[in-house]
Design a protein around this nucleic acid. Structure first.
Length: 591
DNA sequence: GCCGTTTTCGGCCCGACTGTTTTCAGTCG
């Protein structure tokens, strides 16, 4: 049996936490499981392998008890305590706790006192007005439960996902950025900042938080509610407004006092895990952090901060870029006294070229020349044209003969354009057996080859890993594209042993891209950090299929790189062409 | 269940909101 992936282990911890919570365990025990799930999900090495090596308690939040459970999970595929609790609580009960407003305590009472064990029996009981008979429940509770069930089930039907209703970041920013700009332009506004997971550049967001200060808070709140994008207003007052846009995304505007702006912005930027860790560390120094200020036990005074820099400084830290605020070591690194130092993160303007783009030769929309002009407009020194290969299908495949003609076209364009190097490339399919779909002689004639998986996603982890390793070891493969194939909020990554992949890529001098397409961002932040630590040269590519995305996608790749703690040096295509060219495997004698 | 420049036991971030209460538990972010 294959080892469970980190994602599978994390899911097992989450499930056990939920089950223990239903079972009435103290909250700290439940939190311990949720922490362990997150640590596992964020781990850059195989937690199963660490468990086998007897080293898993080196992970923060994993102690002797969880180690025992991990051993059982790795060796038998399940955890005995989970089996026991699953028998005790029906699966429908866990689903009930996912309804907003219905937690483990109340769900369990519904189960024990009314025998309700599913969303269906819950709905029936609410309609029959049997729930109000329970002490602590009333008619309002029945209404809310029915409304929650409707929202939950329609969300499930609409996005086919888990009903969490998250938005890929670019969709959310398309809404958020014009709103923030408009609020900043409003005469009543002083400061307006996006907060929350959008400010941290997370893969997806649930809703949008905007923090502001204003001469006339009410006027600013009204300005938001009157915007065309707003579908409905859930609330408005002197402290802000809460609205829903036509796109279905909720926006919470908070207008706060200027001397607390830093506290509030820091609090609502999160992440939750970052804030909890920040506060726990502060308590040990007699400081209590909240969105209103920092209460000092010694003086009884509350420090209010107009800026985030003041908040972090008061707690002994350098200001931490929002992309790093995930409790992945950033607090330790930011300590003013004894920290190891935060990395100088790569920036959008550091990028000097793009190594993955498409044209009309395959499924792109624009011609070589248009893409070249767009790249030049971005100040790039190089652009690789990498259309799909011979077996791509969808009517977009490029036969070997067509590729030969494409090489000529690209080289001709390269002569026509001054100041930019146009690379004749290809995004070659990695076939299920690990072979490529062009002959080696043709691959050798190209200036650049990026190899990707575009078919047979569901083969098992071992086969997928061997498949990609074959490409990594291939002499004419310079880089690997979108390694895990995930589509954010739409398609899970395929099973692949990223540790083996990164080790092989580092050993072979094969680069791995962060594909910047906003619905891919693949490598993800955790993988990209692990890859760089393993010595892999990271690329930042847009996979642009048209002129516009050559620019517009780039910042999502940068965001992932920054969330991965990457510096400019760790991203290969921050280098000028003269330095990048010899880094290609084919230039290093790889062929 | 984890963890240790106040601890191997006794702590574990902080506050708002909701609905049901008459002082609060549960839930959420």
């Amino acid at each position: 049996m294959a080892d469970p992936t980190n994602a599978q282990i994390a899911a097992a911890f989450d499930e056990l936490g939920d089950l223990y919570e239903l079972d009435g365990a103290i909250v700290h025990r439940v939190v311990a499981y949720r922490n362990a799930a997150k640590v596992t999900r964020d781990a850059s090495v195989s937690v199963a392998a660490l468990t086998r090596a007897g080293r898993v308690t080196e992970l923060p939040g994993i102690g002797a008890t969880l180690e025992t459970k991990l051993v059982a999970l790795v060796e038998t595929g399940d955890i005995p305590q989970a089996q026991r609790l699953r028998a005790k609580f029906p699966a429908g009960l866990l689903e009930m706790t996912r309804l907003p407003g219905l937690g483990p305590k109340r769900a369990r009472r519904l189960y024990e006192e009314l025998g309700i064990d599913s969303l269906q029996s819950l709905e029936t009981a609410a309609r029959q007005q049997r729930i109000r008979e329970l002490k602590g429940f009333g008619a309002r509770a029945e209404e809310n439960i029915l409304a929650s069930i409707v929202r939950y089930t329609t969300a499930l039907a609409e996005n086919g996902g888990d009903g969490t209703g998250r938005f890929v970041l670019d969709r959310a920013l398309q809404v958020a950025e014009p709103i923030v700009a408009a609020l900043r332009d409003h005469p009543a506004a002083e400061r307006v900042e996006l907060a929350g997971s959008a400010r941290r550049w997370a893969d997806s967001v649930k809703d949008l938080d905007i923090i502001a200060t204003a001469h006339d808070p009410r006027a600013l709140a009204e300005a938001l509610t009157e915007m065309d994008v707003v579908e409905s207003v859930a609330g408005i007052g002197d402290n802000g407004a809460r609205v829903r846009t036509h796109r279905g995304i909720g926006i919470d505007l908070k207008v706060v006092a200027p001397d607390q702006f830093g506290n509030v912005l820091q609090h609502f930027t999160g992440s939750k895990e970052h804030n909890v860790a920040l506060r726990e560390a502060a308590v040990k120094r007699g400081l209590h952090v909240s969105e209103y200020g920092i209460l000092d036990d010694a003086t009884g005074e509350t420090l209010r901060c107009a800026t985030e820099e003041e908040v972090y400084a008061a707690l002994g830290y350098a200001w931490i870029p929002p992309e790093l605020r995930e409790n992945r070591g950033e607090l330790q690194a930011a300590l003013l006294d004894g920290g190891s130092g935060l990395p100088e993160l790569v920036r959008e303007e550091d990028i000097r070229g793009d190594l993955h783009s498409h044209t009309v030769a395959s499924d792109g929309r624009d011609e070589i020349e248009a893409m070249a002009e767009a790249a030049q407009a971005l100040g790039y020194e190089y652009l690789a044209i990498t259309d799909h290969s011979a077996s791509h299908g969808f009517g977009d495949d490029v036969s070997p003969a067509e590729l030969e003609a494409q090489i000529e076209r690209i080289h001709a364009a390269n002569h026509a354009f001054d100041g930019i190097e146009l690379l004749a490339g290809s995004e070659v399919n990695i076939l299920p057996d690990g072979s490529l779909d062009y002959p080696d002689e043709l691959l050798a004639r190209l200036d650049w080859v990026i190899a990707s998986v575009h078919s047979s996603f569901r083969i098992d982890e071992r086969a997928m890993t061997e498949r990609v390793l074959a490409a990594i070891e291939h002499p004419w493969v310079d880089a690997i594209g979108h390694l895990t194939g995930r589509k954010i909020e739409a398609r899970d990554p395929y099973a692949i042993d990223v540790e083996r992949v990164f080790a092989a890529a580092a050993a072979n001098g094969t680069m791995i891209e962060i594909n910047a397409a906003p619905d891919r961002r693949d490598l993800n932040d955790v993988h990209a950090r692990a890859a760089a630590q393993a010595g892999v040269m990271i690329l930042l590519d847009t996979d642009a299929h048209r002129v516009a995305t050559l620019r517009s996608s780039r910042r999502y790749g940068i965001a992932t790189a920054r969330r991965a703690w990457l510096t400019r040096e760790q991203v290969a295509n921050t280098r000028p062409w003269a330095e990048f060219a010899p880094l290609r495997k084919r230039a290093r004698g790889g062929g």
